[in-house]
Write a protein that binds this DNA or RNA. Sequence first.
DNA 1: CATGAATGAGACTTCATTCAT
DNA 2: CATGAATGAAGTCTCATTCAT
Lengths: 225, 225, 225, 225
Amino acid sequence: MAEKTKASRRQRERQRHRTEIVDVAMKLFAEKGFHNVSMQEIAAEAEFAIGTIYNFFDSKEALYREIMDEVANNVLSLVRPILESNADEQEKLAGFIRASILVFRENSAAIRLFLRANQGPLANIGTAHFSETAVEVHDTLQTKLRQVYAAGVRKGTFRALDPRVVSLALDAALRAIVFSVAEDTDETSLEQKVTDIEELFFRGILHDAWNRAASAGAASDRGRS
Amino acid sequence: MAEKTKASRRQRERQRHRTEIVDVAMKLFAEKGFHNVSMQEIAAEAEFAIGTIYNFFDSKEALYREIMDEVANNVLSLVRPILESNADEQEKLAGFIRASILVFRENSAAIRLFLRANQGPLANIGTAHFSETAVEVHDTLQTKLRQVYAAGVRKGTFRALDPRVVSLALDAALRAIVFSVAEDTDETSLEQKVTDIEELFFRGILHDAWNRAASAGAASDRGRS
Amino acid sequence: MAEKTKASRRQRERQRHRTEIVDVAMKLFAEKGFHNVSMQEIAAEAEFAIGTIYNFFDSKEALYREIMDEVANNVLSLVRPILESNADEQEKLAGFIRASILVFRENSAAIRLFLRANQGPLANIGTAHFSETAVEVHDTLQTKLRQVYAAGVRKGTFRALDPRVVSLALDAALRAIVFSVAEDTDETSLEQKVTDIEELFFRGILHDAWNRAASAGAASDRGRS
Amino acid sequence: MAEKTKASRRQRERQRHRTEIVDVAMKLFAEKGFHNVSMQEIAAEAEFAIGTIYNFFDSKEALYREIMDEVANNVLSLVRPILESNADEQEKLAGFIRASILVFRENSAAIRLFLRANQGPLANIGTAHFSETAVEVHDTLQTKLRQVYAAGVRKGTFRALDPRVVSLALDAALRAIVFSVAEDTDETSLEQKVTDIEELFFRGILHDAWNRAASAGAASDRGRS
DNA sequence: CATGAATGAGACTTCATTCAT
DNA sequence: CATGAATGAAGTCTCATTCAT
């Protein structure tokens, strides 16, 4: 048992070291970007020798990818259940918005990193071969969002807009809000902003638009030709 | 006059070369990102010697900044007049959307570059001290958007949402759409998507929301639990 | 203890390597001057990779400065005690001369380097911001020399000449002699030359000046013919 | 004649341009050192195109050499006549001292440049193959000084010291003084300092040494231990 | 001769990665 | 596993020099 305990302790120690490295690397990558952080810097900050880091990760890219994957999976595990639940479409979207905010609140550094490398569909531009998992997660969530929206359209709950447009717009808008709050570090304002996004998203910005049934609405004048 | 002509030709040639370099650099930066493009690469692609590039730009950063500034100013000069026109607020926002699309169509590489470095309010993260002009342009447009929206709110045209939220969301959504189209290189779909964004943005996605006068609004039904 | 030993060996090895680099760099700088020696050259000569040198020194300038400072401090530690001793002024100056020669003999390359960058009061011309320590050392020694001379003047030992002139002249003359010997690599001649400098410096060159007294004087014994 | 005049004007213009370039280059070299001045800098300062400079001088080295040679010859033409005159040895040396000062006064930049590259016998170290003429001039003057001193020794005017030592010491001391004055830009002090150098050099610094016939000479008292 | 854009070798420096201890 | 000195490819930038106009 002593053997086992020792092995176990080793195991735990190893895991702890690994976590420390990942945390430091995540923080630095989020702060300065992949190219502006050196392995020596990560090693110094994590208080390990460079070689130690290479015992855990094959390369700088691998370390980065690992982090991205981890974050991506955290996000996915939190958000996916909501989109796959039995709730109706409107509730799913509302839940998505709430979950996105939550994810951000819990680990802003991680999310910041994640968003940085995955802004919209351009994830693979420039950052190249990094973190396919992260891209996959983004695609997965987008797909789910589209499906939810399409379902809502079929049921007559949602208007007949392009689901791709809607899902992209929602995702992008959420990120923008989340980031703006992140920069303000004004925590209290987040609640209100989320509410506003919901208002905007769920009803639209034109008072007249949904208020009076008779309104021809300037917007509706522009037909699809 | 021969002197003058000669000088003039020199001048023109120099300008042409400069433009060639800028174009190549813009393309490469947009494709691969600042850190993944070397000056060697730019020089080779532009078919100049490295030194020649340094005769035009003091450093790689300066070249990048120059490009960013140029693009930023192009965008600003196109979009600002619309937001500062005498049209009513709704038309201004509609014009903004249309202009954004137009700007993108005219020089997608440039815009792609611009957007890459200025995604939302996080422009200054990582890319650091690059292109303050670009950041300024973003801020300027955001400010104008907010003012337009606030004015619309006061006139009762728009609902009383936080202007910051609305302007951020609109901007972010537009970018996302523009990018998604950029990746598809499916030009025809752009029109339709823009129309959808307008529908989404101007009326909201909930059918019931603007359809029935009596509806208390689905969104408000959803309690915050 | 094994740990400690290992660390210690590493430490020692590192120090040894550092010394090797410094020695090679000193030799090359002394031979060819700062600008005519490349880091490549230093690395090759020291049989290290370039990066290794940069693990020890932040820049070429830093390496140069380090060397200069080291040499400067060596000189200072050897010469200063003499000028600050309790001996009378004449003995101090004689000691200064002897010590200068000694310093040179012990590490000619180092001194050559030191002198090259510090010839007279023009140390700061051209070589610019390099090695303030070296300049300081020169100034320190000059100051001490002046004080010693001034003291001698007050006591009536020395003639009432401008101490600045005397100290500069002595220093410059010594350097010239030392260098001329360095070029000859004629070691034996040094002794004689030093004696002559002393004769010149302490009594003057005009026969009449010290002549009548019948002094045979050691110097006059050596016929020059 | 028109032809001739034109040719002559051309000639004169050319000479004028050449002089302007040389003057600017001399100033810059003297201020910052050979390696810290670029041809582009010289061209800009002289208000010529780079190509123009290369029409006059084959290379940067050639330009430098040219300047050094010019300065060297100026010095030589001024000082040599004195050392080759019919005056007695003491007067020759006094004349040398006075002439050295004069040369400096007339064109301090030039001399500063000259001295910088020719400090003592180490002229050829580092600056390498530059300006053999300058080195030759130095050697020529040293040779003449030695001959004068040796002659003085033979005639019993000077003490029997090593002429090489004396000539080196005199030269070095003069330079040091000249430079110290150059840095002070304290013109008035020069006269006094020169006088002091003469006092020092011609009689020696020990009062007792030449004053009392009975003095055994302090210097000779100091045994070599 | 004057011009100055173009050239490219070469200098300095960084940093991901290896490997012996 | 941990360590960290060593490595060297690759990148940025300078500047002497050329050459077509």
